[in-house]
Amino acid sequence: MRVLLVEDDATLAEGIARHLRAENFVVDVARNGEDGQHRGDTEALDAVVLDLGLPRKDGIAVLKAWRAAGRAFPVLILTARDGWSDKVDGFKAGADDYLVKPFRVEELVLRLRAMVRRAAGHASARLTCGPLAFDSQLGTFELDGLPLRLTALEWRVLSCLMLRAGHVVERGDLFERVYEGDADVESNSVEVILARLRRKLGVPLIETVRGRGYRLNAPPA
């Protein structure tokens, strides 16, 4: 899951980003509204965490610009303002959720996971594909009812495929949701991760669609 964090407080942004990465999110950070808007316009994102009080361009203006341009990714706004009118302004601009500072990062993680899951079209937090189950709120996988141990990169790949089960995920799209922009990786790294996942799953759930990407399918009954 790739998240853009737009927050001008360097200490807060560093702390949030560190915690999200520990929860297997890929995190991009922007420190002002102009940079944040540009990243939202040009990067493949699953969700955005957007502070309202930003330099150069405030969060409401950034959010309105994204929505006017057809950017549909879910947005959670952060605000130090506890007034109802500020929350209303955020929702009118196109926000999906909000948190008032100070907040617990654990709650932010849960809200982000819920937003990403709903944006992918899933009402239930528990997703299944054949013998594979994914609790999108807890971030845990099970295979045949037993916990499935995954590395951070394996988790990112499998969660992306699971949220889009039955649909082709393009290789480039998958790559962007696994690695951060400054990562130094081999061109075949995604294929290496997929090979490891296939061995761990032991059943043919992951299909390679030539020239397009990959798809997670339930095995025939």
Rank of each mutant, 00 (worst) to 15 (best):
Q137E: 14
V48D: 05
I16G: 01
D96F: 00
L153W: 06
V203L: 12
G33R: 05
R196Y: 10
D86N: 13
T208K: 14
L158G: 05
Q37T: 08
E14G: 15
D86L: 09
L63M: 12
E180T: 11
L12M: 14
A65T: 14
H167W: 12
R212I: 04
G33D: 02
N32C: 07
F103W: 12
L76Y: 04
L52K: 08
V178I: 12
R156V: 06
A93P: 00
V29Y: 01
V168Y: 02
P102K: 11
T79D: 06
R104E: 14
R113V: 05
G172N: 12
V27P: 05
G33N: 06
G211L: 01
P204A: 04
V75A: 03
D184E: 15
R111D: 01
G33I: 07
R171S: 13
L148C: 05
V109F: 00
E176V: 09
L20H: 10
A165G: 10
P74A: 07
P55T: 10
T208A: 12
G145K: 03
Q137G: 11
I60S: 05
L158R: 02
F103H: 08
F134H: 02
V88Q: 11
K200T: 07
K57W: 02
V75N: 05
E43H: 15
S136Y: 00
S159W: 10
A22S: 14
A183I: 13
D135A: 10
R111A: 04
L63Y: 01
L174W: 03
V27R: 09
A30R: 08
Y179N: 06
D9E: 15
K200Q: 12
G15P: 11
V62Q: 09
V109Q: 00
P147Y: 07
A10F: 10
V48T: 09
S187I: 05
K64W: 02
A120N: 09
L110G: 01
F25T: 00
A80E: 09
I16A: 10
F25H: 01
T11I: 14
A125W: 03
S136F: 08
A80M: 06
D46L: 05
F91W: 11
A218D: 01
L143Y: 09
G70R: 03
A17E: 01
R113L: 06
A44L: 14
L4V: 05
L110M: 13
T42S: 12
V75M: 07
L197D: 00
N217R: 15
K92P: 01
D46W: 00
A80I: 02
M162V: 08
F91Y: 13
L112V: 09
P131D: 01
V26K: 05
D51S: 06
E180W: 03
G15N: 14
D28Q: 12
V157P: 06
L197T: 00
K64S: 10
G213K: 06
N217P: 11
L12E: 07
A125Q: 13
G90V: 00
A17Q: 01
L112A: 02
